[in-house]
Structures are given as structure tokens and as C-alpha cells.
Simulated assay, not measured.
Amino acid sequence: MTTQPSDPPTHRGGGGRFVRAAARVLATAGLAVDAYLHAHLADRFDTITSDISQGTLFRLEASLAALAALLVLFWRRLPGDLFAAAVATGGLALLLVYRYVNVGELGPIPDMYEPLWYEEKQTAAVAQAVAALAMLYLLLTRRFRRSAY
């Protein structure tokens, strides 16, 4: 049987691999941008404090995003992907909540309400959204190995 050029391919090509690799690169880049921006901006927010300063929380976010980026790029396992998805979506959710809702002080967490959009905040929101969407794609298209019994 000969294959005609219009026939669909009968094998699983590398296209899915390429898309997954691109999603990993996008997620890593988004998390790296998030890490950089939070580390860069942290000292500006050290004066906003309760028991913990907002600058300290920014440094924590920067550290978590950097670790998540490394896990996505180099470890490529489900726990690392879940961690990265949580960091990206959690960071974006908190950014949006504190942009639109005046939560006030929560125990040791300072009042971080900031109803403004500025370049770094917009960039962080886009980076976190890109990372979250890329991680969602990676998690939804993950192939699980079946254990042989």
C-alpha cells in the first residue's frame, strides 16, 4: 500500500514534543521574569510592614519562582511541574487580588493593596499568566506511565 501525500501521518511525530518543549521554555521564561522583577522591586517595599515586610514577601516570591523555573527546565517531573504551576497561578492570583481588593492587614502580612498598574506590575502579571498557561498545558498533556503488573 502506498501512502499518498494527502494521507494523514500514521505515526506520532515529534510535533507534540516540540510544543511541549516550547511550553517548558515559555513557563521557564515567565517564571524567570517573575523572579527577576520581584527580586528587583523588593527593596522598594521594605517599608510596607507588619510582622513581615512586603519586601520580604517579594524576595520569597522571587526565590520560589526561580526554583520553579529551574525545576521546569531541568527536572521535568510531576511534582516540579505542580510546584511551578502553583507558584505561577498563586503569584498571579495574589497580584490581582491586591490590585483590585483592599484586603487590609492579615495577621503578620502587611496591607499590600496597590490599586495602580505600572510597567513592572504589568510585566509580572503577563509573565505569571504565560507561565501559568504553559504549565496548565504541560500538566494537561502529560503522559503517565502505566505500571506493568
Rank of each mutant, 00 (worst) to 15 (best):
G55C: 03
F58E: 05
F58K: 05
D46P: 01
T47P: 06
Y36G: 06
S63R: 05
S63K: 04
R59A: 06
F45D: 08
Q54A: 14
I52E: 12
T47Y: 03
F45G: 05
S50N: 14
F58C: 08
D34L: 12
L41F: 04
D51C: 03
T49Q: 15
T47E: 11
L37T: 04
D51M: 09
F58Y: 12
L37E: 02
S53I: 08
A62F: 00
T49G: 14
A62P: 06
H38I: 00
Q54Y: 03
H40G: 02
D43S: 15
T49C: 14
Q54C: 03
S63W: 00
F58P: 09
D51H: 08
A35P: 00
D34M: 11
S63C: 06
Q54F: 02
F58V: 01
L57T: 02
A42R: 09
L57E: 02
Q54W: 03
A39E: 06
S53K: 08
A39F: 10
F45N: 08
L41D: 15
L60I: 10
T56A: 13
R44M: 11
A62I: 00
D43P: 10
I48A: 10
T56K: 08
D46G: 06
E61S: 15
S53Q: 07
H40C: 02
E61A: 15
G55W: 00
D34S: 15
T56D: 07
I48G: 06
S63D: 01
T56F: 06
L37P: 06
E61V: 14
T49V: 15
A62T: 01
Y36M: 10
D34G: 15
D46A: 11
A42N: 09
T47K: 07
F45K: 01
S53G: 11
T56V: 13
L41G: 06
T56Y: 05
T56R: 09
L57F: 01
T56H: 06
G55M: 02
H40K: 11
A62G: 07
R59S: 10
D43G: 14
Q54S: 12
A62M: 01
Q54M: 09
D51Y: 05
L60S: 12
F58I: 01
S50W: 09
S63H: 01
G55N: 05
